[in-house]
């Protein structure tokens, strides 16, 4: 998580207007999920990976590792899709007989599984593109323009900021506990962990009070308003994004015989 955040601030697409990146990620994501076509999903995955690794300069090893994160869940889902159950043995590429029914893999189920696999990876790559190129404060700026209620945005802003403070505090408590053999045995580990959690909540509560006082001291009256960072829209980028997504859409619709 820290690393994703680090790349979000240091990547080569940092200076690109967040609305362009957000739009690109969201439109491509919708196409990938909505068109439900294998070629479009593969194309999405390729385009987004190209953008993340080549354009933004994220190390490819790190990116590949990120892509493997959802793999566990994905494979479990795919297993359920690949195998189909039927009372007749017809149409199976491979299968077995179990308690009076045939369980096996058909051509259709295999195709469907592959399609699902790439659709999920394609969709995930769109989100990674956004997460790896756009800091949260920039995403909030776009959401604000899209008239998302301020309450949600302020919550997102505070949660994002204080997650780091909380993690740092937890890290420090953990360090101090382990320095005193707090995690040497299983029993000690449970006790230390309980202490850590209790302590963390007490501190978080106290901190929230102080933070509130600090906000009041700066004239807080219920709205967390901040200045937006300056970004320039680039017509070149918008043209490229539109062209890529149009192509994807045409490609997908053509494949399904709609146009």
């Amino acid at each position: 998580m820290f690393k994703i955040d680090h790349f979000a601030y240091t990547n080569r697409l940092k200076a690109v207007h967040p609305a362009e990146k957000f739009g690109f990620a969201m439109i491509t994501l919708s196409l990938c999920v909505g068109l439900n076509s294998l070629p479009v999903s593969v194309a999405t995955l390729t385009i987004m990976s190209f953008a993340v690794v080549v354009l933004a300069g994220t190390p490819w090893r790190f990116y590949v590792k990120l892509l493997t994160l959802p793999l566990g869940f994905l494979l479990m889902g795919i297993v359920a899709v690949v195998f189909s159950v039927s009372s007749v043995a017809a149409g199976y590429l491979w299968g077995f007989h179990l308690a009076g029914v045939y369980v096996g893999v058909t051509e259709d189920s295999l195709y469907f599984a592959v399609q699902l696999f790439f659709k999920v990876l394609g969709a995930v790559s769109c989100l990674y593109f956004l997460a790896l190129t756009t800091p949260l404060t920039d995403i909030l700026q776009v959401l604000r323009k899209l008239r998302v209620p301020p309450l949600f945005l302020e919550l997102m802003m505070l949660i994002y900021r204080f997650i780091f403070v909380l993690l740092e505090t937890a890290g420090r408590i953990h360090l101090s506990q382990s320095s005193r053999w707090g995690y040497a045995t299983i029993t000690a580990s449970y006790r230390s962990l309980a202490g850590l959690i209790a302590n963390l909540f007490a501190r978080a509560y106290w901190r929230s009070q102080v933070s509130f006082h600090a906000l009041l001291s700066r004239g807080y009256t219920g709205r967390l308003e901040v200045l937006e960072s300056d970004y320039r829209l680039s017509w070149k980028n918008i043209t490229v994004i539109t062209a890529v997504d149009m192509l994807l859409a045409v490609f997908g619709l053509y494949g399904r015989g709609i146009i």
Partner: peptide, 29 residues
């Protein structure tokens, strides 16, 4: 507006993840 307090622990005072936006909060208020 006239009496400002700099809190002891900056981690409790800074609420924004972006330095520029953080500083702009007071003036906008």
């Amino acid at each position: 507006k006239n009496v400002g307090i700099v809190f002891q622990d900056p981690d409790t005072q800074l609420f924004s993840a972006n330095v520029f936006q953080e500083i702009s909060f007071g003036p906008l208020n």
